[in-house]
Design a protein around this nucleic acid. Structure first.
Length: 418
DNA sequence: TCTGGGGTCCTAGGACCC
DNA sequence: TCTGGGGTCCTAGGACCC
């Protein structure tokens, strides 16, 4: 199996269309221009850590002639599609694991796997401008580790085939236990206290000890390190247990009328995502929270849920539920920072629980209204047709001060070549 | 002044069923 | 003197992923 992973993906997408960003420290910020979530090699070199809040690194970045960008998901999503498309020519079995990573089965490939990896890398770069690294091994967890080693060691040219490595143990020995896929900070700490520091030591741990300290998921990880595949292909991407829209506000919000707009807009957006996946939901959760970093301010973070009698994907029902829950938990006097709407109890459209007391055909009419709304918005752009309760001014909306154009998905933002 | 958004799985304990 | 066996569902909390 090969794991193909795009290098500094968001930064690389921006650099394809903005040559001024090359050979300089560049970071891409999270929503609301919060934290650095993608860093160029130059940004890492000047000591910016992953996840650093923008306001803390602003000066450092300026001093080194660097630049920060707001995240531009339409661009990254479209570029991701191009990368995945290119990769799918190399294997009939491709599992898109995230926006910037895919696992490819190399079962049928004859000849040198390293050369196959090189070919993927060159094709993706030529067709999309995105640099990728390729890790090859007998299991997904080992492929992840191989990919990490390929990225770190320039001499490997971005490709490492662990299955043909003369001393595979040396690669595992060079990686920390916490660098293994599935071992997060908490388990890494626990493993250190047990005297396990490297990926190699983790691989050679006693099964019972692993099970006891890291549950069955940890045991699967260890088996994978030994070359025994335990991690299956994910379910179809459409199936989800929950679909959410949760966002921070650009400014602190105190007024319930602003919160009503946000609750309505987020419920509406979550419902759009739900329908885009062909799902219905039977429960809605709403939460509200103050700024947890402001220790001196009073904190309040209510969470509430409600369950419907029947599955639905009809936006007005979600908006109504979210607004009702907001009224229920809202307390004046707090400076609210974020709220969110989570739809759960999902089922494929047409397969959910029905309501015994609904009039026949009611759901179908609702669906047709939603289809019409979604069609208009897909032709004319998201938000062309929206619920008035979501507001028009939206003074609470998130900051996106450094947003680049949607080069590949909007005619009026397409780059001009002279 | 400023600190993201979206997901998943596992376990333990309680309540319930036949 | 003696008190079963086999399940499900729900929730909260903790861990992980990108």
């Amino acid at each position: 199996v090969a794991l193909v992973d795009c290098n500094n993906f968001y930064v690389s997408c921006e650099r394809v269309f903005a040559p001024r960003l090359r050979n300089r420290p560049v970071v891409v910020l999270s929503n609301n221009d919060g934290n650095a979530v993608a860093l160029s090699a130059e940004a890492k070199e000047i000591g910016i850590p992953f996840g650093a809040p923008y306001f803390q690194i602003k000066n450092l970045l300026e001093k080194h002639g660097g630049e920060a960008l707001s995240s531009n998901y339409p661009l990254y999503g479209d570029m991701s599609g191009r990368v995945m498309n290119t990769l799918s020519a190399f294997s009939p079995e491709i599992e898109i694991y995230s926006i910037d990573e895919a696992f490819l089965s190399l079962k049928g490939i004859k000849g040198d796997l390293y050369e196959a990896g090189r070919a993927m890398r060159e094709a993706v770069f030529r067709y999309t401008g995105i640099p990728v690294s390729v890790g090859i091994a007998s299991t997904k967890t080992l492929a992840k580790l191989a990919n990490r080693a390929a990225k770190r060691d320039a001499a490997r040219n971005g490709v490492l085939d662990l299955s043909a490595h003369p001393r595979p143990d040396s690669v595992l020995e060079a990686a920390g236990a916490g660098d293994v896929w599935g071992v997060g900070p908490a388990y890494a700490e626990k493993l250190r206290s047990l005297g396990v520091f490297t990926a190699l030591q983790l691989r050679d741990m006693d099964d019972r000890r692993v099970r006891k300290n890291m549950t069955v998921t940890g045991l699967r990880t260890v088996h994978e390190l030994r070359g025994m595949p335990c991690i299956e292909e994910e379910d179809t991407p459409a199936s989800r247990r929950s679909v959410a829209c949760t966002r921070s506000f650009g400014v602190p919000v105190m007024d319930i009328s602003d919160l009503r707009e946000a609750a309505s807009a987020y419920a509406s957006r979550a419902a759009e995502k739900l329908r885009a996946r062909g799902l219905t939901a039977s429960a809605v959760t709403f939460f509200l929270t103050t700024n947890r970093f402001k220790k001196e301010e009073p904190q309040y973070s209510p969470w509430v849920s409600c369950t419907f009698a029947a599955h639905t994907c009809y936006t007005p029902l979600f908006i109504r539920a979210a607004l009702k829950m907001l009224e229920h938990v809202y307390r004046p006097g707090y400076r609210y920072k974020k709220c969110g709407v989570i739809l759960s109890g999902t089922a494929a459209a047409g397969h959910g629980q029905l309501n015994l007391f609904d009039r026949p055909g009611g759901e179908e009419r609702a669906m047709r209204v939603m289809e019409a709304v979604d069609t208009v918005n897909s032709r004319l752009g998201r938000g062309s047709l929206f619920y008035a309760s979501g507001g028009t001014d939206r003074p609470w909306s998130m900051r996106r001060q450094f947003l680049s154009p949607r080069y590949t998905t909007r005619w009026d933002e397409i780059p001009v070549v002279r």
